Amino acid sequence: MIVFVRFNSSHGFPVEVDSDTSIFQLKEVVAKRQGVPADQLRVIFAGKELRNDWTVQNCDLDQQSIVHIVQRPWRKGQEMNATGGDDPRNAAGGCEREPQSLTRVDLSSSVLPGDSVGLAVILHTDSRKDSPPAGSPAGRSIYNSFYVYCKGPCQRVQPGKLRVQCSTCRQATLTLTQGPSCWDDVLIPNRMSGECQSPHCPGTSAEFFFKCGAHPTSDKETSVALHLIATNSRNITCITCTDVRSPVLVFQCNSRHVICLDCFHLYCVTRLNDRQFVHDPQLGYSLPCVAGCPNSLIKELHHFRILGEEQYNRYQQYGAEECVLQMGGVLCPRPGCGAGLLPEPDQRKVTCEGGNGLGCGFAFCRECKEAYHEGECSAVFEASGTTTQAYRVDERAAEQARWEAASKETIKKTTKPCPRCHVPVEKNGGCMHMKCPQPQCRLEWCWNCGCEWNRVCMGDHWFDV
């Protein structure tokens, strides 16, 4: 396979590697080409510095992935760790964990309700045991953590790749202090920090972006993250068709209702045909949960890209028209025109101005929308079919299609509260000796007794199943 190397943020060049090629071997190839010592090179990928003893497969490097290699003399205490030698983080029983690669970060837990604080980093599902597709590297999971809308060759929703760059020099040479644990960490600028490894760059702020994971991409090709779309790892039924499908869209209502993408497309087109989208002054033209839940309008309007190009163009047109109407304007009634106009409040005669090729020149009556006339309008008909009709959803289907309910059931079956801080902690095999993952707590306690870890627990039921 081919990976592209950008040395000291210059133009990239291809390097041929195998899945079992080590990072140090990659350094040696680059060092020979650039005429520099291999031990002064640092390989940066997806916000993480890659260790010498890791392989291309370990690092989730795919065909035509772009890695950054910078030349920086080692500072005291760094060289041993980078070589894969006596790194205290690798000691058996050590409590410190390697910062998780962005290629394996899962933010789907952050669609849980606000009262489930902490689960994004504490609760991990076991539903990723799908067998890898044919042709994928051994052991590589097909679980997708992110979804994007690819405006490039795909023109559809695709699995996405999370990447990070330095907000100062805009190069992907920043190593994160810690990985993101929720969508806010990724979507809110300057929320996460790190250290830029580019020479002479003092940058410390992280800037995240997404790429389409279905095809090789260049540095400049980015895609918009659709953070309401998630892999259906909890096997929730769709609120409309009641099938279990994946991926799904999880509405931001209190129940976190789930809808499959085909039904979401149908829901949007139906509402669009009836012009029953909601115009929100802050958000724009949007839709609420299909069950009509309060405070559930979709905030990231790129989710409506699921409509496809033709329907999305209609959505944008109707949204612009609705904006004009909300501002007190009118639409030209001549067939084939429909231009938005903003006449004076007491102006009865409205002319669709033909300047700049935008208007048709038609003069019409503001009251009856017919060709302009003197005197009273002959008839004014009330528009028919403008009443909002509820999208029919079966109550039982709505009850079963809740992301929140599956989460709470998982928590109930696989977790116990920490005796000190009461945060839910998952036990997935292993011994009875637990350690609270909350940095402010870190209590060592017994899963069996529910009390602080002691010699009695150690001698009596340390390794009970």
Rank of each mutant, 00 (worst) to 15 (best):
215 H>A: 02
206 A>V: 05
35 G>D: 07
240 T>M: 15
73 P>C: 06
282 Q>H: 10
66 I>K: 02
230 A>G: 06
14 P>Y: 03
84 G>S: 11
265 H>P: 03
400 Q>R: 14
4 F>E: 10
42 R>F: 03
364 F>D: 03
278 V>L: 09
326 Q>T: 09
101 S>V: 09
277 F>M: 08
379 A>Q: 09
363 A>K: 14
425 V>R: 05
147 Y>R: 02
297 L>Y: 05
269 V>I: 08
400 Q>C: 14
172 A>S: 12
163 R>E: 15
322 E>D: 06
401 A>Y: 02
100 Q>W: 09
375 G>I: 03
60 D>G: 15
203 G>N: 04
176 L>E: 02
338 G>N: 09
177 T>C: 09
88 P>I: 12
310 E>V: 07
405 A>W: 07
77 G>F: 13
190 N>W: 07
394 D>G: 05
437 P>D: 07
167 S>I: 06
151 K>G: 15
6 R>H: 06
304 F>A: 02
179 G>L: 04
118 G>R: 08
123 L>Q: 15
63 Q>M: 10
221 E>G: 08
452 E>K: 02
157 V>W: 12
303 H>K: 01
435 K>C: 06
461 H>L: 00
337 C>R: 03
236 I>G: 02
12 G>F: 04
416 K>V: 09
177 T>I: 10
213 G>I: 06
176 L>A: 03
353 E>V: 09
420 R>P: 01
50 L>A: 03
95 C>D: 14
179 G>E: 15
400 Q>G: 14
3 V>L: 15
193 S>Y: 11
353 E>T: 08
68 H>Y: 03
399 E>K: 09
204 T>N: 10
195 E>L: 09
389 Q>M: 14
93 G>C: 09
222 T>K: 11
58 N>A: 14
255 S>E: 14
130 D>F: 09
111 V>T: 14
109 S>G: 14
294 P>V: 11
142 I>C: 11
393 V>Y: 04
425 V>Y: 07
86 D>H: 09
105 V>F: 11
254 N>D: 14
270 T>E: 05
194 G>P: 02
26 L>E: 00
380 V>D: 07
443 L>H: 14
197 Q>E: 11
88 P>G: 11
57 Q>I: 06
274 D>H: 04
51 R>P: 11
330 V>T: 11
439 P>T: 09
266 L>S: 10
164 V>I: 14
265 H>N: 07
452 E>F: 15
127 S>Q: 13
216 P>M: 07
206 A>P: 09
115 D>L: 05
270 T>R: 04
417 P>M: 10
24 F>M: 13
324 V>E: 04
298 I>W: 01
409 E>M: 09
279 H>G: 08
244 V>F: 04
341 L>V: 12
99 P>N: 14
73 P>I: 06
215 H>W: 00
451 C>S: 15
95 C>A: 13
431 C>W: 03
278 V>H: 11
147 Y>D: 01
176 L>S: 03
167 S>P: 03
71 Q>G: 04
205 S>W: 09
318 Y>H: 02
329 G>Y: 04
134 A>K: 11
352 C>G: 02
235 N>W: 05
278 V>Y: 09
325 L>M: 07
243 D>S: 14
68 H>E: 06
